[in-house]
Simulated assay, not measured.
Amino acid sequence: MRWFSIVAIAVVVSLVGCSSPDDVPAISSTESRAESPDRVQRVRDDIDAAVASGVSGVIATLTENGETTTLAAGVGDRATGVPIPAEPPQQVRVGSVSKSFIAAIVLQLVTEGRIQLDEPIDTYLPGSIVGDSVDGRVITVRQILQHRSGLPEFADSPEIDEYGAALDGRTFTPDDQLAIALRRPAQFAPGARFTYTNTNYLLAAMLVERITGRPYTDALQDRIIRPLGLTGTYLPATGEHDIRGPHPRGYAPINGIRTDVTRIEPSVPWAAGALVSTGDDLNRYFLDLVAGKVVAAPELQQMLAALPTGVDGMPEYGLGVMSAELSCGTSYMAILTRALCP
């Protein structure tokens, strides 16, 4: 089975008041020796099309046979109109890609015999998951990693606003987030179906902390970031609103107005979505992951054993990763913006 890694991140999205294509700078790119020029061109065409459609900027990092190519299109700051540079590697908030890192650490702990996937979460976090039709004694660790727990979604609550929290100086603890989630009833009985829910990975990171006896950031650093040499990857601390390294600005519509939302409060998404990384680092991580350098083979097989989600347009979901197989036999992880056959 062949894996080809492309990480493409639409880093500066403008859905309101978009410029015309003529107002957006042409693609800026750097290229190392590429094994598949046609594939690189197709990705280049894709990101140019994204910018033409109104996305302010895109960075795409392609790695194949040990060679990496970085492409960039559009602007990294709408105020200045400066194009996104392809080099040095740009740091961006990678959102729910963060969940794969949590799942990998949990599976490392499974390998070590410290967690069992089919054990109830209450075994490890006793008495913590109790609410309206919510009972941690009948929700397994595997169901949490698969988004099949039925737990309510903390991110549905109005106070969960990472941009607004940064403006107001509000912060959250994982216990705060869990309490917010448990105000709501369960979405369904454990195992009944798939529903993507951030609360699952909030709990998974809390599980890592309980088992290791250390902050999640320490486990992340010691188990993945440092061993793999991911020099551009980190989980921001509570109150750390800015991105540390070179980065583009990020925009989103708020009340119909395109707003710079680059600065956020990272304790809101926390481990489930606040990770900062680069395309280079993410490609290294995912290629090392499927090569068995992050998670041991038996647990990696379970991680990649994806089930149908029952959601139109959504690939199958394993443990912290989506995946699918193309008609040409190439497998890909669905965090990738485009999967290309050789």
Rank of each mutant, 00 (worst) to 15 (best):
residue 3 W to C: 02
residue 8 A to K: 01
residue 11 V to H: 13
residue 14 S to M: 12
residue 16 V to D: 12
residue 16 V to E: 13
residue 19 S to G: 09
residue 20 S to W: 04
residue 22 D to K: 14
residue 29 S to F: 01
residue 32 S to D: 09
residue 33 R to T: 08
residue 34 A to S: 15
residue 37 P to S: 06
residue 37 P to M: 00
residue 39 R to A: 13
residue 39 R to G: 02
residue 48 D to W: 00
residue 49 A to H: 02
residue 50 A to F: 04
residue 52 A to G: 07
residue 53 S to Q: 06
residue 57 G to S: 03
residue 60 A to N: 09
residue 61 T to Q: 03
residue 63 T to C: 14
residue 67 E to C: 03
residue 70 T to F: 13
residue 75 V to I: 13
residue 75 V to E: 14
residue 78 R to G: 00
residue 81 G to E: 02
residue 81 G to A: 10
residue 85 P to N: 02
residue 87 E to A: 14
residue 92 V to I: 07
residue 98 S to N: 08
residue 102 I to S: 10
residue 108 Q to G: 04
residue 113 G to A: 13
residue 113 G to F: 15
residue 116 Q to C: 07
residue 116 Q to Y: 07
residue 119 E to R: 15
residue 122 D to V: 10
residue 123 T to W: 10
residue 125 L to Q: 03
residue 126 P to D: 09
residue 127 G to N: 00
residue 131 G to C: 13
residue 135 D to W: 01
residue 136 G to W: 02
residue 142 R to S: 08
residue 144 I to K: 05
residue 147 H to E: 03
residue 150 G to L: 05
residue 151 L to F: 12
residue 153 E to R: 05
residue 154 F to P: 00
residue 160 I to N: 03
residue 160 I to S: 01
residue 172 F to L: 07
residue 177 Q to F: 14
residue 184 R to H: 11
residue 185 P to H: 13
residue 193 R to C: 03
residue 195 T to F: 13
residue 200 N to V: 11
residue 206 M to I: 01
residue 207 L to F: 04
residue 222 D to A: 11
residue 223 R to Q: 13
residue 227 P to H: 10
residue 231 T to R: 06
residue 235 L to T: 05
residue 238 T to M: 07
residue 255 N to T: 00
residue 259 T to S: 08
residue 261 V to S: 11
residue 262 T to R: 02
residue 266 P to L: 04
residue 266 P to A: 05
residue 270 W to A: 14
residue 271 A to M: 07
residue 278 T to Y: 02
residue 281 D to N: 05
residue 281 D to V: 09
residue 282 L to N: 05
residue 284 R to F: 00
residue 285 Y to I: 06
residue 287 L to S: 10
residue 288 D to K: 10
residue 291 A to L: 04
residue 293 K to L: 11
residue 298 P to E: 00
residue 298 P to L: 01
residue 300 L to P: 03
residue 301 Q to T: 15
residue 311 V to R: 08
residue 312 D to C: 01
residue 319 L to C: 05
residue 320 G to Y: 01
residue 320 G to A: 11
residue 324 A to D: 12
residue 326 L to E: 11
residue 327 S to Y: 10
residue 329 G to C: 10
residue 331 S to I: 04
residue 333 M to P: 02
residue 333 M to R: 12
residue 336 L to H: 06
residue 337 T to D: 15
residue 339 A to Q: 04
residue 342 P to Q: 08
